[in-house]
């Protein structure tokens, strides 16, 4: 079940990427997808039933827009620091507690954090995520947890858990 779902996703991706419906192309795609699931199938998400819940896709769309908005703000923030003559930066690494359990949820959270306001994920160790912050607004754990991961975690919980 897990392998079939993974195969279908990869195959669809191949078809979109090559955008051609000839027999040779379909066979190449199928063989490439098979080789990929042979090697990497075991790393795929365990609970594939989640792929068939429509409300998860609804939240995924909502999350996409939330993420794009945050991403846009992040870019203006970093661009402002780049072109400001005095370069107002105050770098540091902070430690935030994770509330997500699944591997894929954590991966997407880490990638989202890397793409938003002056933050880059450095490492995940057990239940904590370490984040490099270009401008440390406050040193209070509650405030910065909310500021960095709070706005994404609620959506990601609905999508992946």
């Amino acid at each position: 079940m897990k392998y079939i779902t993974f195969f279908l996703i990869l195959f669809l991706f191949w078809l979109l990427l090559t955008f051609e419906l000839s027999v040779a192309n379909i066979i190449t795609g199928a063989v490439a997808s098979l080789i990929t699931i042979l090697f990497f199938g075991k790393y795929f998400v365990n609970d594939v039933k989640k792929f068939f819940h429509p409300h998860r896709y609804f939240w995924l769309i909502v999350y996409t827009f939330v993420f794009l908005w945050e991403c846009l703000k992040a870019n203006f923030d970093v661009a402002y620091r780049v072109i400001h003559p005095a370069m107002p930066i105050k770098p540091g690494i902070v430690k935030v507690k994770l509330n997500l359990k699944t591997g894929i949820g954590r991966t997407i959270l880490a990638a989202s954090i890397t793409m938003t306001p002056g933050t880059i994920t450095v490492d995940i160790i057990e239940d904590f995520i370490y984040i490099h912050w270009i401008y440390v607004h406050s040193t209070d754990p509650e405030v910065y947890s909310k500021k960095i991961s709070g706005r994404f975690e609620n959506y990601l919980k609905r999508i992946f858990e």
């Binding site: 870019n75 970093v78 661009a79 620091r81 370069m87 930066i89 793409m115 002056g118 490099h132």
Partner: peptide
């Protein structure tokens, strides 16, 4: 902006901030 940031920022970490966000 990303490229200017790559030149202006002082160290690896801050340069990565400009290099990932603005350029992506």
């Amino acid at each position: 902006f990303g490229c200017i940031g790559l030149i202006r920022f002082p160290d690896v970490y801050n340069r990565l901030q400009a290099g990932t966000k603005c350029v992506t």
